[in-house]
């Protein structure tokens, strides 16, 4: 069996409130999927995700690895206008089950991830 990676557009999460978003993410991770989401979770969402994860840890599920690239914060007119209108200006989140992700190396503009399935 290979490793399943699911790429999720930000539109797919648009109509979900924070609780629904966390449930959606964790349900998929507990099915041993790595998710690449087309948006950056906010710091408050990340702590919410950690809390939810902790409440679900047991002998089979040991938690998550998560890494985000933040939205562009440039002061360009286009980006400022998008943000003013409530839109997002990029960003990315990679999340997966910790037993599958062996290593995550985060840098300001890239994420390196090593995943390996136990035989």
């Amino acid at each position: 069996m290979g490793i399943e990676i699911e790429f999720i557009s930000s539109e797919m999460l648009d109509d979900k409130n924070e609780n629904e978003k966390m449930r959606f993410i964790l349900e998929k991770i507990k099915k041993n999927k790595i998710l690449v989401i087309e948006e950056s979770l906010s710091s408050l969402e990340e702590t919410h995700l950690i809390e939810e994860t902790m409440s679900q840890i047991d002998e089979k599920f040991s938690g998550i690895e998560v890494s985000t690239l933040k939205e562009r914060t440039s002061g360009g007119i286009r980006d400022r206008l998008i943000r003013f209108l409530g839109g997002r200006t990029g960003g990315l989140t990679v999340i997966g089950p910790s037993r599958l992700i062996k290593k995550v190396k985060k840098e300001p503009q890239k994420i390196l991830l090593l995943a390996e399935k136990k035989k």
Partner: peptide, 17 residues
């Protein structure tokens, strides 16, 4: 250790927020 981890970033981002 490498300080640029998601946990450190999340804690600091949360405190800033």
């Amino acid at each position: 250790k490498d300080p640029y981890t998601q946990v450190n970033i999340t804690i600091i981002g949360n405190l800033e927020a």
